[in-house]
């Protein structure tokens, strides 16, 4: 009951924000909502089905480039381009997930790491398609006629709706029967098979879905930034996403938002403190530290800490009620 309330508050706040903030700040929170998508894909893939991916950044980038190319070279309207990106992400996820079926944990991690390293190189190589190192600029998304919103506000709300829909879908998926099956897949795969769980199909399904979700995030992010460049999707970005997921809580949807805030704002903060040239590298060191600290002291991430705090408050209240 309390969870619904909390989510309701977040939803209302989310919709209200663009009216309070200026266009630049709205742009920033749109970056957060779109970055929350690949992190949510990690929550599903790693937190729930137990498969580690070091390549969600590449899938994000794949979605981004598909969307950009579809709009600029293909002349497609942006909603179609975004859908196309999702389909490509789904296909890529399935393609990656299939060989990973034969082995446990590491194999998907290995394939996705390879993809993550390879992806920016492929982007730079196929200049004609991808614009090479300079990437592609996408036109801004115009607010449809009749709606009284600025371009930035409208686009943010689109990303907000997409995120809400994905969260709702995934949360629903991970409840009840499928949720139990995922838990079994992650923790006791042999037992899962003997209780009728088609572990192979579930695994592949999850990898496919996570690919689609990550690509969706990438596509929307491309629209928000109005540009796609290979450097943005270096394999360190995949690791940054993993960091965000772990910090937020690898099994927490709310944690995906927390992680996204982290991934979007920390590089900014670091760059403001340290100056531009080495900012990226200091950020990496920062990520590494936070990641390690989280692992050692708060393994369930900030969401875990959050629930521990609310539990403690609840317990204290209970004690107070029974105080003599």
């Amino acid at each position: 009951m309390r969870k619904w309330l909390l989510w309701g508050v977040v939803a209302v706040a989310g919709i209200a924000l663009p009216y309070i903030l200026d266009d630049y700040q709205t742009f920033q929170i749109a970056r957060v909502t779109t970055t929350a998508l690949p992190i949510a894909s990690l929550v599903l893939l790693t937190g729930w089905s137990g498969q580690v991916s070091a390549g969600q950044g590449a899938l994000f980038g794949l979605g981004a480039y598909t969307c950009a190319i579809a709009i600029v070279s293909g002349g497609l309207p942006w909603p179609v381009a975004v859908l196309l990106a999702m389909v490509v992400g789904l296909a890529a996820g399935l393609l990656l997930g299939l060989p990973a079926l034969r082995l446990s944990g590491m194999s998907l991690g290995l394939i996705t790491l390879s993809l993550a390293v390879l992806f920016p190189l492929l982007l730079s190589r196929f200049k004609d398609l991808t614009g090479g190192p300079f990437g592609i600029q996408t036109p801004p998304v115009r607010t449809p006629a009749g709606i009284q919103l600025s371009s930035a506000q409208f686009l943010y709300l689109v990303t907000f709706v997409a995120l809400a829909a994905v969260f709702a879908l995934l949360a629903l998926l991970c409840r009840g029967r499928t949720g139990r099956a995922l838990d079994a897949l992650r923790l006791q795969p042999a037992m899962a098979r003997t209780t009728g769980v088609d572990t192979r199909r579930l695994s592949v399904l999850v990898v496919g879905m996570s690919g689609a979700v990550a690509a969706l995030g990438g596509a929307l992010n491309a629209l928000v930034l109005q540009s796609v460049v290979p450097d943005a999707y270096a394999f360190t970005f995949s690791l940054a996403l993993l960091t965000g997921a772990v910090i937020g809580g690898i099994r927490s949807w709310a944690g995906a938002l927390v992680g996204a805030v982290f991934v979007v704002y920390v590089p900014q903060l670091v760059s403001d403190t340290v100056g531009d040239t080495l900012a990226g590298h200091w950020t990496q060191v920062g990520y590494a530290l936070v990641l390690l600290l989280t692992l050692y002291f708060a393994p369930q991430g900030l969401a875990g800490l959050g629930s521990r705090i609310t539990t403690k408050i609840g317990e204290r209240r209970a004690h107070q009620n029974f105080a003599p």
């Binding site: 772990v246 060191v285 590494a288």
Partner: peptide, 15 residues
């Protein structure tokens, strides 16, 4: 957790 540690090491040392 183990994979995350090595990923963290990768990021950190690289940086």
């Amino acid at each position: 957790a183990l994979i995350t540690v090595t990923a963290a090491l990768l990021l950190g040392l690289n940086g």
